[in-house]
Design a binder for these strands. Structure first.
Lengths: 401, 401
DNA sequence: CTGATTAAATCCACTTATTGGATTAAAAGC
DNA sequence: GCTTTTAATCCAATAAGTGGATTTAATCAG
C-alpha cells in the first residue's frame, strides 16, 4: 500500500542520507556532504549538529593544503554503536559483538547438542550479557541483534520447505522472544540475505549497489541486493538459487523436484562426493570435509570441477535475470575452495553482463570469510538503523536515534 | 549515490501517492485516501485542490447510505492526460494514443520496409501529429511518448548482443531525436519491461506489486516489477530469461552460449518446428505461424508440449530467485497459445512459491493481448509521471504536472 | 418531526525543516 | 598586507503537514 510522508520523516531520511554518505565515502567535510547529497550546506550543518550529542561522528583536525578555509573532516565513530550477531545450527551457537566500523569486539562460541528454543534462548541471553559486561559497552549504544539459523525465513518467521536440522523452530516467534529477553530490537533473516547485507556494509559489496550474493553452505542460497537494499521477494523467500533446475530429471531433491543445483553444488553434495555415497541429509562432518579440501583429495577436486560447471550455468541465469554489477561468492567454506570455484567459472561466463568495455571481474570472492553468517546477522541491526530506505519515510518506520 | 530531500519533493511525492491511490483503488473519498495513505485529511484536501485546475480528478455526486456526512467520491479523469506508444520492427510501425484510463483513443499502423532512423522518425512525427489533430486533444495534456523496438536497451540507448533486425539503430539517440521532433518527453525501453509496465498499470499486474512478466515474442524476454517499479538491473539489461541455460550443451545461440531457453521457447523456435528446419534468424512469417496455431498444426502442438517443459523449468528458477506474487505470460502471440502453455505448465510447478495456503494461480495470462508491446510503450510516459517513485524525492526528478 | 449521533470536509493557528543570502573565519596566492 | 577562495554558520523567510475546532449533511432513535 502507498503511504505519504511529512517533514518529520523527510528529516529522518536526510539524517540517514548524511550518515550513510559519510560512512561509505570516508572522511568528508560538511561541504562535501552537501555536494554529494544535494542538500544545502546549512541543512548538513544542522543534521550533523544533531548527531554530535550521540557521538556518532568524529571531527578530525582541519585539513590544510588547498585554498580557502580548511574543511573539518568527519568520520563515523565506530564505537558509537554496537550490534549483536547470533547464529546457530545443530552443532554450535556463535554470538558476536560488532561495532559500527564492522570490527568484532567480542565473541562467544558454544557447542550445542539439541538446538531447541528452550536450550538456545537462555544461552543466547547469557552470552549477550557476558559480552556486554566484558567489553563494558554501555547498553544504550546497542542498536539491536540479528539472528540467523538454518531455516528459510518468511515474513519474519522460520519456515522450511524440506526437512530441517532445527525442526523445533518451525513458526517459532524467535525475534519476539529474543526481544523480550535481550530488551533490544531483534531481526531474523535468511543466512544468504544476512551475509549479503554484511558484505554490503563491510565487505566486497561496499562498492556496489546491485549484486547477487551466493552463499555456499550445507545448501546453497542467494542474497539479493538491489539499489543498496536487500530484496527478499514478495514473501521473503527470494534468492533460492539452490533450487534452480540444474540437471533436468537429475538427482531427486527434498523440495520435490529433480536436479536442483543444491544437489550438485553445496557442502552436502561435496560431502557425498567425498564419501562416494548418496547424500544423507544428516549432519555433516565439516572438519573432515575441510581437511579433505586442504589435502586436495582427488574426489573433492573432481567435485570442484563438476560443481563449477553447474554453478556457472546458474550464474549465467542470475546475470541474465538480474544484470547485477557483480556476483559475490561466499559462505562457510575455506577460501581456497571459493578461489578454486571462481578460477574454474569466471573465464567462460557469457551473459548480458558480458558487455563490451566491461573488463572488470564479475565474480568476486566475499570478504567476510568463514564467519559471513554471524557477521551478516550482526549487520542486520546496523543496516536497519542506518539505511536511508524508502520505508523511513513511512509513519511506521523506526527512529534512528 | 545518495541524495537528500526537502519539503518540496516530499509534497511532489505525496501528490503522486494520492493520485496513484485513487487510480488503483477506484472511487475514493478524501477521508478514504487519508486513511489509506496515512496522510492527514487536511493534507489530502490540499493536494486534491491542487489537482482540480488540471482536471485530473472527477468528483462524483455525494454517496449516501451510511451515517454522517456523505463522502464525495473521487476518480481519475481518463481524459486529463494522454500518452503515445510507438513500436516498430522490420515489418511495421504502430503508433497509439492512450488515455489515462488505459483506453486507446487512436491508432496508426504503417508497413515499413527499411526501418532506418531516416525513414522511421518522420513517419512517427507525422503519425503523432495526425493523431493529435484527428482526436482534437489539446497538446498540453500529452505527458509524453514511449518507444519500443527489437533491441536491448541499456542506459537509454539501443544495444544488441547478437544480430539485430534493426541494425541501424545501434547506439542511435532515439529518445533525444524524437524529443526534438515531438516536443514531449520520450522514453525508450525494452519490449518486455514496457509490456510489464503496461500490465502493471492497466492489466493483470494491477493487483500485484511484485511480478515477473514473460514476454513471448520472436525471442523471449522478461520484465521485472519489484515494489510496483520496474527493475532494469544495474545496466538496464535485466530480465533476459531467454538466455537462461535450458539444455546444457543444447542448440547454439547467437549470444555465444548453447541451449538458451529462447532456442526452444519463442516464436522463432516455433517457426523452426513448424517448418521442420533449424532457425534461420531471418524475418518470420508470423501470419502463417498464427494460422498454423489456429488450425492446430500437429508440429506446433508438439512444439507447445516441448516448450512448456522448458518454460516450466525457467519459471521454477524465476520463482525461486524472485519469489514474486505472480508470473504473467504475455506477448504478441494468440491467446490460445498462452492458454495452452499455461495449461501445460501450471499444475506441476514446484518452487518456493509452492507454499502452504497458497492456492492462488501463480502463472497468469497477460490482459493487454496482442498489442502488449505498443501499449507498454504508451504506458511508459504515464508511469513516469504518476508513480510515487523514490526518485521523485530527488532534486533531479521531473515535475508531475 | 426533532434532537442526537456520526462522519466528511474544511478553517485556522502553529510547528518545523529547508532555503538562500549575508556574514564570519581561516587558509593560500600575489 | 591585501585579495581571493572556500568552509561553516547566522538569520529571516518560506512552505507543507498537523491537530483541534468548526461546519455540513446525512442517519437513527424516540
Amino acid at each position: 500500500m502507498l503511504f505519504g510522508t511529512n517533514l518529520d520523516r523527510a528529516q529522518r531520511f536526510n539524517r540517514r542520507v548524511v550518515l550513510e554518505t559519510i560512512r561509505v565515502n570516508g572522511p568528508l567535510s560538511r561541504a562535501d556532504v552537501a555536494r554529494l547529497t544535494g542538500l544545502s550546506a546549512q541543512t548538513v550543518t544542522n543534521i550533523i549538529d544533531q548527531f554530535k550529542p550521540a557521538g556518532l561522528l568524529i571531527e578530525k583536525p582541519r585539513r590544510t593544503g588547498g585554498r580557502g578555509q580548511p574543511p573539518i573532516d568527519l568520520v563515523i565513530n565506530p564505537s558509537a554503536a554496537f550490534s549483536f550477531g547470533i547464529s546457530f545450527d545443530d552443532r554450535r551457537l556463535v554470538v558476536v559483538l560488532l561495532d559500527l566500523g564492522g570490527e568484532i569486539r567480542g565473541q562467544a562460541e558454544l557447542p550445542v547438542a539439541h538446538p531447541t528454543p528452550g536450550v538456545i534462548l537462555p544461552l543466547v541471553e547469557a552470552a549477550v550479557n557476558q559480552l556486554v559486561s566484558k567489553t563494558k559497552i554501555s547498553p544504550e549504544l546497542i542498536w539491536g541483534a540479528g539472528v540467523v539459523m538454518p531455516v528459510l525465513v518468511s515474513q519474519g518467521h522460520p519456515t522450511a520447505l524440506g526437512p530441517s536440522s532445527v525442526p523445533d523452530w518451525q513458526d517459532f516467534p524467535v525475534a519476539e522472544k529474543l526481544r523480550e529477553r535481550l530488551n533490544m530490537p531483534v531481526f531474523l533473516d535468511n543466512d544468504a540475505t544476512a551475509a549479503a547485507i554484511g558484505e554490503l556494509l563491510f565487505g566486497a559489496g561496499r562498492q556496489f549497489s546491485d549484486f547477487f550474493y551466493i552463499y555456499l553452505g550445507v545448501g546453497v542460497g542467494g542474497g539479493i541486493i538491489i539499489s543498496s537494499r536487500p530484496y527478499r521477494g514478495a514473501f521473503g523467500m527470494s534468492g533460492e538459487i539452490g533450487h534452480m533446475m540444474s540437471v533436468p530429471g537429475g538427482r531427486p531433491c527434498p523440495c520435490g523436484n529433480k536436479g536442483c543445483l543444491e544437489r550438485y553444488v553445496s557442502l552436502s553434495a561435496a560431502d557425498a562426493a567425498f564419501r562416494e555415497q548418496p547424500e544423507t541429509f544428516a549432519a555433516l562432518d565439516l572438519d573432515e570435509l575441510y581437511k579433505g579440501f586442504e589435502t586436495k583429495n582427488p574426489r573433492l577436486m573432481n567435485w570442484l570441477d563438476e560443481a563449477a560447471e553447474h554453478l556457472r550455468n546458474a550464474i549465467v541465469s542470475v546475470e541474465n535475470l538480474f544484470d547485477p554489477q557483480a556476483v559475490i561468492l561466499g559462505g562457510p567454506v575455506p577460501d581456497t575452495v571459493l578461489d578454486a570455484l571462481i578460477e574454474r567459472i569466471e573465464p567462460s561466463l557469457i551473459s548480458v553482463s558480458h558487455r563490451q568495455g566491461n573488463a572488470s571481474s564479475r565474480l568476486l570472492k566475499a570478504e567476510t570469510g568463514l564467519d559471513s553468517r554471524v557477521l551478516g546477522a550482526a549487520s542486520l541491526a546496523i543496516f536497519d538503523s542506518m539505511t536511508p530506505d524508502f520505508s523511513v519515510l513511512k509513519k511506521e518506520a523506526i527512529e534512528v536515534e
